[in-house]
Amino acid sequence: MVLTTRVGNGANGVVRTGGGHTRRRLLGVTVGTAIGVAAPAGCGLFGDDPEPPAPDPLQPVLDEARALSAAYERAVATQPSLAKRLDPLAADHRAHLEELVRVIGRNVPSAAASSAPAGSDPGETLSGLRSAERRAQRTAAALARQVPAERAALVGSIAACRGSHAEALR
């Protein structure tokens, strides 16, 4: 269902039913998380190219770590006066990214996670980052409750760190 909508948007409302390859190409990177849905819908079953591996359950946490790290860099580039305060937080996200890549075993960026735009003044920038940290904390905390034991400590610490960032930005 999701696929049909996206294809429609991307191809002037023409929904193609036969061309799995074409469809996939149209969808581009956004198909990353939806490819598993595409196969049962009729394409890819007899395809000659191997399906990419299913995304790791921690992919959203990795995407957020990357997006947050970039958001901090943008913020500091726009408002250098915030560097002293924001640089250590950006370093935390880079450390998360490194650990997540190691645990997941590959570094595949999926659809860009939404990230905080740099505000026009420091106050606005900080509050935008704070909201982004809170959202990212919720993602990680929800996953920390479900992941297998060997991943629980890492994801739990990442959730806690994001919460402490929201506090640090107050």
């Binding site: 250590p88 937080l89 370093a91 935390d92 806690a160 760190c161 919460g163 402490s164 506090e167 640090a168």
Partner: peptide, 28 residues
């Protein structure tokens, strides 16, 4: 999960009050 986050947030608050920098750690 909640208790770990709570402790991390309070540690950050105390570090800020103490003037300790950085106020966060990457893996609480």
């Amino acid at each position: 999960v909640d208790a770990l986050a709570g402790a991390a947030v309070r540690a950050t608050r105390w570090r800020r009050l103490a003037g300790v920098s950085p106020v966060t750690v990457p893996f609480p």
